[in-house]
Amino acid sequence: MNIFRLAGDMTHLVSVLVLLLKIHTIKSCAGISLKTQELYALVFTTRYLDLFTDYISLYNTVMKLIFLGSSFSIVWYIRRHKIVRRSYDKDQDTFRHYFIVLPCLVLALLIHHKFTFKEVMWTFSLYLEAVAILPQLVLLQRTRNIDNLTGQYVFLLGAYRALYILNWIYRHYTEPHYVHWITWIAGIVQTLLYADFFYYYFQSWKNNVKLQLPA
């Protein structure tokens, strides 16, 4: 464990807890894409298949349970909670799941480390996580209003993967392990997807104006 990875995990943890807390306290999911949340639940499910088979550390297991629990809770709130679901803007959140899931699945079947179920699922989760934010970014473009909790959520989500890239650089130079090129590429693509959001987020923060994404 190095400081970059710990900072990355904590940033990721805060991002999902901020979102869960927002939905739980104000009982609203305005501006949140259910599609992206469902994709994240799928990412964690396919990423953590080894949850009960390979014990790595208490930290690892606890964090996996938190990520699984929080992502499914968020999906449950938006889908089932009698108050929260009313604030879900399903007419705007229309990104088709299969436009993202199918290409990632095909890519994982074509490009992977080993052709085993767990390995292909793990690779699928890497590709899926890289693009799972797209429905949320599309929704933000459409609704154009970004309340600052949603802005913070997306910012923290992007920051966590950027910190992971620093972690992979650190591990590459300091550990006898190697970071596979698939992990590098999926992580870099994911961070680049946030890059334009980061630009507008910093602009609004610097000029102290409300965050507006160009149409």
């Binding site: 690892n60 992971y164 970071v179 596979h180």
Partner: peptide
Amino acid sequence: EKDEATKDEL
């Protein structure tokens, strides 16, 4: 031959 990392990552 290095063995692969990142499987201990989240």
